[in-house]
Design a protein around this nucleic acid. Sequence first.
DNA 1: CGGAAACCTTGACCGAGATCAAATGGACAG
DNA 2: CTGTCCATTTGATCTCGGTCAAGGTTTCCG
Lengths: 251, 251
Amino acid sequence: MDRRMTLKALYEHSNCDDCPIRHRAVCAHCEKDELEQLEEIKYYRSFEAGQTLIWSGDQMSFVGSVVSGIASLTQTMEDGRTQMVGLLLPSDFVGRPGREVAPYDVQATTDLVMCCFRKKPFEQLMATTPHIAHRLLQMTLDELDAAREWMLVLGRKTAREKIASLLSIIARRDASINKAGMAGPIVFDLPLTREAMADYLGLTLETVSRQISALKRDGVITLEGKRHVTIPDMGRLMEEAGDDTDGGFLV
Amino acid sequence: MDRRMTLKALYEHSNCDDCPIRHRAVCAHCEKDELEQLEEIKYYRSFEAGQTLIWSGDQMSFVGSVVSGIASLTQTMEDGRTQMVGLLLPSDFVGRPGREVAPYDVQATTDLVMCCFRKKPFEQLMATTPHIAHRLLQMTLDELDAAREWMLVLGRKTAREKIASLLSIIARRDASINKAGMAGPIVFDLPLTREAMADYLGLTLETVSRQISALKRDGVITLEGKRHVTIPDMGRLMEEAGDDTDGGFLV
DNA sequence: CGGAAACCTTGACCGAGATCAAATGGACAG
DNA sequence: CTGTCCATTTGATCTCGGTCAAGGTTTCCG
């Protein structure tokens, strides 16, 4: 894969209603010109599936959030073992205000559109408008909770539980985006290859495949083709994941 | 263990030079009265080894930081499997400003002294003094990086590498607190039982014991008694951990 | 000093998941 | 339709770390 990428900014929209940062910035304390300032330093970028947006150790020039598609954060050891350490779905934030250098690779797992802000101006804006900083702290705390929940998955769950955990995370996020409830069957397309799932779960792709087959055989999920998943009973899936069944909070 | 704990605030010192928050708060932008405000809501608490400060699901009434000793964050599944998701050494921050309920247990792994701030006043202070919020964001980002680095350990490293990783984290922190350099042997006391290490590493205590014995046999570490460790060659240990040898940044 | 309770080590065995290998299926170009 | 490519599935075997069990050390307390 080519290490360089098209850095051309894509000013596709002059005003952007679907930008998650903007939505998040809109609150009782917002002032009109704060939004305008955000607009000024905002731009869009598209990436193809498989592209690496940022390499570990690179200078970071922007922060931003996922508009559509999926990005992933991965760490790699010298011998090639890789571990995905974050899965960024639409509305998730990317970047470390105040940091110069990226601590891990950021990849486009699917075709991806990002809403970006140039980093320096964004940091200045953060310094002058406290509620953006506050919002960012809340988002970072959410990420930290998610990372720590995932540590339990990586450290203590069996392969079957790991798969069920991943499916239930994706299903939950998907249902909340589509504003569907938890009741009734949930249907979605798996946005990850077996290999990407393996990298997220600390497994091999063969084990992922076997466990998905097993969940299918046992009626926990239904598969059409290799990617289209139906979950007839979300509670059952969460049991398989080893989670508290009642802890079904929507993020 | 008793779920209730002595909540008695310990106003041991009326002015506190060793308080990490205060140190962190001292910067070019600090104003005198900000420190005074922090002083007003600050108090100390001591805990015995094994005590649980906060139970998952509890209301949190304070935030604060570790003065001495070690605290740990743990998650537990219904069947008893537990995973430690954070190791809090002196100067590390505890608490989620803006959150009501604790997402995991906080335990005193050793005897512990915390420097606490009542949560509500602290949050108000945060809202009025942006640089505290900023400082907190930086600390949270650090924690997030540490959590993600640990995900690689949990997901992809062998038992031997896991042990070496834990030892090198403790050694690094210890050396930086004592202002010792990385050159030359590093000596410290293991602050964790084999079981606690196992919970942090996603292993069993037997495996921890075996791997420590193996590292001793191979000359990577020296043990006196069960806890007193000498690391003759930090570079060697980091190789065993599977880390980039040159990435020896002190936090 | 003696006995009990933690904590730790070591051994024997087993099994979940890794590894190596081959077959299957779907998408797409020609 | 046919061949190629890639993702996935499935099978056979191996191995690392878990499990069960026994014994050793240290600490603490009467």
